[in-house]
Design a protein around this nucleic acid. Structure first.
Lengths: 190, 190
DNA sequence: TAAATAACCAAGCAAGCGCTAGTGTGAATG
DNA sequence: CATTCACACTAGCGCTTGCTTGGTTATTTA
């Protein structure tokens, strides 16, 4: 039983689990469904994961870690201009949201199913990610680019961005970058 | 078995069910938990509702119908000024969101658990509500109050507003009206 | 006063749940 | 060549699930 390893097999199983969790919801996804999707029997599943909870934690950790990495990379690649940084964060957010869509939908809507230990651990990752946002928004406010309270503005922006998973169609005419540009245009005073 | 009536008893049971669905999630809420919260035995539950699905539909219908009523009332009470109408809609949205918080959280996050028939029926209610928003936002765009595409702007605004249920603390210093004012201030170009 | 109705309960069924125990197998390791 | 290990299997345990059945009681209606 691999408690914390990241074998390629386990990574692939985690990806499949994310897909099923999105389709059915965590509670309605049975270990038998997961096993079938993975091409094994339900008993074999517990060789890779200690229990069903651990699969959920693996899915969410994967997604959140990716978001953090992508956001950091995006910020390091642009200059100190507040507007450029705001753009970069919005683009990075939507990019990871739809590149790892399944994992992020699970993170956004099944977080409450995590047991307290896993939730505490993953909260740190998520907090680190949101701290990046608060930093960028603070700069935008000080530069007069956006008007409002830092806390509220960051919540509104993240809400607007996260909600896109409920309506955005990747096969439609708009790219995630289009969305990011439109959102920034909407909130910047000029 | 009352299929579609709205006896006071059934209304009260629906309210209690909404609370449990929020606390535990629809799937993890068992009919035995529901019955206990209602002070009856699990079998008796099926005198009031045909099945568990019907309880969910009742919860969501209640919340959505209220939202529609409140928004219509709010619009009829303000003049034709686009900014006033935008304010009124934002306030009405947050007002109903926190007055019927449980029902709305269920509607937002457990909608997918509805069976196709109930979903189809309730979609009409929700569409009627969203049509009010599109109307108001269209006016705001034409008046130059907000910049952007009508579809995207309405999605962003509703996303920001709906996401408040995940972080807003009614016991904190801010009122729902404060939130509405801040959001409108953030997105209006001036 | 008789009949109908609403509201409830005790008991339990069939199905499905997460998870465990014990075993087999082929590849890598000593 | 013997041992270990990763990975999978079969079989099923103990429990919970949504829901049904058959019947009781209190209140309203004819």
């Amino acid at each position: 039983m691999n408690v914390m390893n990241a074998s390629p097999r386990r990574k692939e199983l985690t990806r499949l689990a994310a897909q099923l969790f999105v389709q059915e919801g965590f509670d309605r996804t049975t270990v038998r469904m997961l096993a079938q999707e993975m091409g094994i029997k339900s008993g074999s599943l517990f060789h890779h994961f200690k229990d069903k909870q651990e699969i959920l934690a693996a899915v969410i950790e994967e997604g959140t870690q990716n978001a953090l990495n992508i956001a950091r990379a995006a910020l390091s690649e642009c200059d100190a201009n507040p507007e450029a940084r705001l753009h970069a964060m919005a683009r990075a957010h939507l990019e990871t949201l739809f590149a790892d869509r399944n994992a992020h939908v699970v993170a956004l809507f099944e977080w409450r199913r995590l047991d307290p230990a896993a939730s505490a651990h993953l909260s740190h990752l998520r907090d680190a990610y949101e701290a990046l946002w608060v930093d960028v928004i603070d700069d935008a406010l000080n530069a007069g680019l956006v008007r409002g309270d830092c806390f509220l503005v960051s919540r509104f922006i993240l809400g607007a961005l996260n909600w896109t998973v409920r309506w955005y169609d990747p096969n439609g005419p708009r790219t995630p970058d289009d969305l990011a540009d439109e959102l920034v245009a909407m909130i910047t005073a000029r």
